[in-house]
Amino acid sequence: MRVIVQDTPFDFGQEAEAFASGRHDMGAVVTFTGIVRDLATGDLDAMEIEHYPGMTQKALEKIAAEASERWKLGDVLVIHRYGRMTPGDKIMMVATAAPHRKDAFDAAEFLMDYLKSRAPFWKKEHSAQGAGWVAAKDEDEAALDRW
């Protein structure tokens, strides 16, 4: 299990290949990458993500460990960035490896839902209209109900 919180970009292809390489005992590897999405108005200049380093690392490690306990996984990778990013930049990556695809998919979705709504990150959008903090969305919170 690897959990990485960093301010620098990551290479999705390189991370996915390293994660999947040599997995002779795993039948499935699932990956997901979150990307900075432009606003509906098309004028997002940047998104700034803040966090408390020690708290964030521990929270992400805890949820990755919980995923490993709930599903039969061979490995978990979580990468999440912080700092200033622009539309199209990769924010985060989740990868799960499991003997069977259902466990890999379910665990990856669980991790993504957690990261979207409960991980201790704070997002601020910067646009021509100014800057504002991104509020939690009801549908993101509701997604956690299934877990």
Rank of each mutant, 00 (worst) to 15 (best):
S68E: 15
G74W: 04
P87K: 06
I63N: 00
H100M: 07
S68K: 05
A97H: 01
A107S: 12
S117C: 03
I91E: 10
E66V: 07
R118T: 00
K58S: 15
M92D: 12
I91C: 08
A108Q: 00
I63A: 03
R70V: 03
Y114V: 03
V76M: 01
E109H: 10
E109G: 14
H100I: 03
L111S: 03
M85Y: 11
E109V: 03
G88P: 00
A65E: 14
S117K: 03
D113C: 05
K102R: 15
S117A: 15
E109R: 14
R118Q: 14
V94K: 02
M93W: 08
I63H: 08
A64S: 11
M85Q: 12
M92S: 15
K102M: 06
I91D: 07
W71C: 05
E69V: 09
L60A: 10
M112T: 12
K72D: 15
A104E: 10
D113K: 06
E109C: 09
T86F: 10
D89C: 08
A97K: 00
L115W: 00
D103Q: 07
A108F: 00
D89L: 05
A67S: 13
G74V: 01
D89G: 06
F105A: 05
D89H: 08
A95M: 12
F105N: 01
A97N: 06
V78G: 02
F110Y: 15
K90I: 00
K72Y: 00
M93Y: 10
L115Y: 04
